Amino acid sequence: MLDRIKASMPSLAPAEQRVAKLVLGDPRAFANLPVSELADRAHVSKPTVVRFCRSMGYDGLSDFKLKLAGSVSEGVPFIHRSVDPDDKTSDVMVKVIDNAVAAFLKYRNDASTFAIEKAVEVLAATYKTGRRIEFYGAGNSGIVAQDAQHKFFRLGVNTIAYSDGHMQVMGATLLGPGDCVVVVSNSGRTRDLMDACDIARRNGATTIVITATGSPLATAGHIHLAADHPEGYDRYSPMVSRLLHLLIIDILATTVALRIGGGRLQPLLREMKNNLRTKRYA
């Protein structure tokens, strides 16, 4: 329903377009507010609100609201809503949360389980042979690489993370057959990451790339895990792609842990937890 409204906007009259923007901006609020409040927020007359609903193919405002409420209840709409400087705190909270949840739900529907399965097989095989798994990322993605290293380190994996371009090139140079490198990048166009990925691949290491579809990095690795989400670079908004990358890392770490098996892993995690208790206040 929201996709249809968005696609119909160019054909609507200017006043009806303002109503459409109000719907897309906060569909839940639109479904619950009275017509007078909707008209005030859209800066249109009450008949214009009703006319917009009929333009969308519904009997009137009540019918439109009923269908909208049902559509929204099925899940967060897959649209990116940028925050604005004049947003209230409540607006910012809703937009940031909705953007993150929408990205997760879209990834759940779009993700290639075949690609994830291939990546898990490589990571698990690298662990079993005692070879190295390295995580590379630059800037914001460098933090994701560090988080990934922490998750796999806890599993007893021989791993390290680099966010410095020189260290990435040096680390990739030392890799060989049986090793694995996971490269994380939102843009997929960072020169240092591309160089490190190419070097690791030439040396025989398996390369897994977590990046946007269609980017140069997406075709540079052996296995591509697509992470596609629009970012409002011109707005004051957090990078949802960072959360999406962390989610993908969590999926990989969890699945690899299951492949390792509880018989080998559970005693290690239990001992680690017991040893860390001394670091906490009772």
Rank of each mutant, 00 (worst) to 15 (best):
A100F: 03
L269H: 09
S45K: 15
R235Q: 08
I248F: 11
L123W: 03
D87G: 05
H224I: 09
K95W: 05
S241G: 00
G137D: 04
A103G: 04
K67G: 00
M194V: 08
E16G: 13
I97P: 01
L247P: 02
S62D: 15
G137K: 02
L193W: 06
Y233A: 11
M56A: 08
L276Y: 12
A69F: 04
V92I: 15
L276D: 08
A31T: 06
F114D: 12
L68M: 02
A145F: 02
L252I: 07
T89L: 12
S45N: 13
L61N: 00
I5A: 08
H43P: 00
N140K: 07
G262M: 07
V83T: 14
A7L: 15
A69V: 05
E74D: 12
L174S: 13
Y136A: 00
S187A: 12
K273R: 08
V76T: 15
A42Q: 04
Y58L: 13
V144K: 06
T129L: 11
L61P: 00
L193C: 06
A205C: 02
V157D: 04
V169C: 05
F30N: 00
R191Q: 15
G214Y: 13
H222C: 10
R54T: 12
D164H: 10
L246A: 12
V209Q: 09
I160P: 00
H150N: 10
A69T: 00
I143Q: 00
T89N: 08
A102N: 06
P267R: 06
G262F: 10
S8C: 10
V49E: 02
Y58I: 00
A29W: 12
A227E: 02
R270A: 13
S8G: 05
K88D: 13
I143S: 03
G57M: 03
V19N: 02
S55E: 07
M1R: 09
K21N: 11
K118E: 15
A227F: 01
D198M: 10
F52S: 01
Y127H: 13
D164A: 06
V44S: 05
Y281M: 10
A282C: 04
N158E: 02
L66G: 10
D164K: 02
T255M: 11
L123P: 00
H150L: 14
E271Y: 02
R41Q: 11
V96F: 01
E117S: 14
A15M: 08
D250M: 06
L24E: 12
I5K: 02
K106T: 14
A125S: 13
M167L: 13
E271H: 03
L217C: 09
Y136R: 04
T113I: 09
L268A: 13
A42M: 04
M272I: 00
I199A: 04
A125P: 01
T159Q: 01
F152R: 06
